[in-house]
Design a protein around this nucleic acid. Structure first.
Lengths: 149, 149
DNA sequence: CTGTAATAGTTGTATTTGTAACTAACAAGC
DNA sequence: GCTTGTTAGTTACAAATACAACTATTACAG
């Protein structure tokens, strides 16, 4: 048995994807069932709930989401009266997005669920471990491997 | 400023997804450019490279991947002569999958890249942190939050 | 002004994915 | 044997995504 054998379970991108998928599954089910939202829509909703009025570009930067995804998510959220769109009259290219009353209610509800969900996930970890995990994930989110290719 | 304000950056599924996406991007580019593979195909390739001959169901269990994804990945990998399919004559429902010489070569190449890539990712973390991260990710991969809904 | 480039956001089309229904082969009860 | 159920894998169709090309508006150089 070679000791330097490559282990798939040790490959960080794989591990991260597995953990991300496993940990998202049940929560995804909740916003889908309750509000018929897709992941992109949920993300837009949460950004607006957290930061208030934003443009599509703002959300794109913060969430690292492509503008076409955002455009379509916003369209659907607006259609279902979760989001208001108001054009900036000083620069008619940009449009401000904000939650409607209904959007705010959905956000409040899902935020509460998310808090409990997060706590339940954390139960699998001890507190020190959880803290290190968060820090590490933030670092990894910043960028990929430094100038790999 | 409320101290119990929900923070999106603290929500584990979100953090995990961000980190997974960021950390997969460049590697994804490599197997796509060099071998025209999709993520599902890469995963099948790696499972066969690591564990040798497997059935589609075996891969599905190990990788937590749906059978239709595997079916399609195997089809394409076979088409491009990366994997061989041989029917089990004792039970003609099952089919054994294994790497061709060409598949083995691709696996060897990508495994080497993955090792270096992983090392580069790890450089952003200190060793103790990396160890905790791996353990935590494995725990989270096992299951979602315990009986949440 | 006018032409060129940049920015915000949208739409079109080809890929990919998810879900359910399907075929084929085996197993087990009667 | 024949029905019923189960398992392995595939296929069909709807939904979602990626990528490129597009419109509309502003900026700015000459």
């Amino acid at each position: 048995m070679e000791t330097d054998e490559f282990q798939l379970q040790q490959f960080l991108p794989y591990l991260l994807n597995q953990a991300a998928e496993a940990s998202s599954l049940e929560f995804q089910q909740i916003y889908k069932d309750r509000y018929g939202m897709l992941r992109t829509e949920w993300r837009v909703l949460f950004h607006l709930g957290l930061y208030g009025r934003l443009t599509a570009s703002d959300i794109g930067q913060r969430a690292r989401m492509h503008k076409t995804k955002i455009s379509r998510a916003v369209h659907r959220l607006n259609e279902r009266r979760f989001v208001d769109r108001t054009r900036n009259e000083d620069d008619r290219r940009v449009e401000y997005l904000s939650l409607t009353r209904q959007g705010q209610a959905a956000y409040n509800d899902l935020r509460a669920v998310a808090r409990r969900y997060d706590a339940a996930l954390m139960d699998a970890l001890d507190p020190a471990e959880a803290e290190v995990l968060r820090r590490a994930l933030l670092k990894l989110s910043e960028a990929g491997p430094g100038g790999f290719t």
